[in-house]
Amino acid sequence: MSVTALKEPPKEARRSGSAAVVRLAAPTTPARPSRWPGYAKSVAVSVLPPLVMVLLLGLLWELLCSGPGATLPPPSRIWADSKDLILDPFFVAGPQDIGLGWRVLVSLQRVAVGFGLAAVVGILVGAVIGQSVWAMRGLDPIFQVLRTVPPLAWLPIALAAFRDSNPSAIFVIFITAIWPVIINTAVGIRNIPQDYRNVALVLRLNPIEFFWKIMLPSAAPYIFTGLRIGIGLSWLAIVAAEMLTGGVGIGFFIWDAWNSSRLPDIIVALVYIGVVGFVLDRLVAGVGSFVTRGTQAS
């Protein structure tokens, strides 16, 4: 134990012998700015810097790729060659000649099915595993290994099993996205405080009620972490899988464009993929923070 030496009494206390009324400074009313400029400012602060950066990088790119020996097209050529792709995402000019918006939607549809399955199965399996110490001990190392298998490595197996490209692509998404969902759900279930379990025991909640009323809400922050990782991996996997399985998805578009040497098209498609991936991530994160709002124990 340490003894803190008593310091000199603070000035105010020492002077208190001579009692003088200290008048509080009159509160200065700050000029209250109206709400609207504040809002505009926050938008500007978050939108302007990336915008400036994009312009600068575009400029740099233009400079680097304008030379005679450049192997990649500069932005100006992309604009000239692929204007229709950029300006109209939803044109239909033939069965194989459709806007990138349509292609993205086709890919998203596959992701929706594959990721949706992965989410449901992953949460259920994770819940079962999280409930049992032995299942956790036995299965966790296996999952940690399977988790690291690259999405495309599953494709041959999927093609062999399903003998069709569409279910194979969906399977690849499923198998890629499911591991983080399982692992995070299981961890979330293991971390349910004993207090909540005791409440469930006293109330005699049955397993189904326990799942809905205690498990899901309590583990929701963990589950959404898993889902967020999962949706990111799904989007990575779909592009790769579609390059190999064909069809009209955005992944196959890139492959097709490469085979017919349409580099500018590929770059436009990359931007689409990046933006959609970003939106998906934000979507899951947003849903997550909405669902788990205010649920943190205090």
Partner: peptide, 18 residues
């Protein structure tokens, strides 16, 4: 076994925060 005939008020309230 636990049951609602013996209701518990826990040391730390144990309300479900959600």
């Amino acid at each position: 076994a636990p049951g609602p005939d013996r209701a518990v008020v826990f040391q730390n309230h144990s309300l479900l925060p959600w």
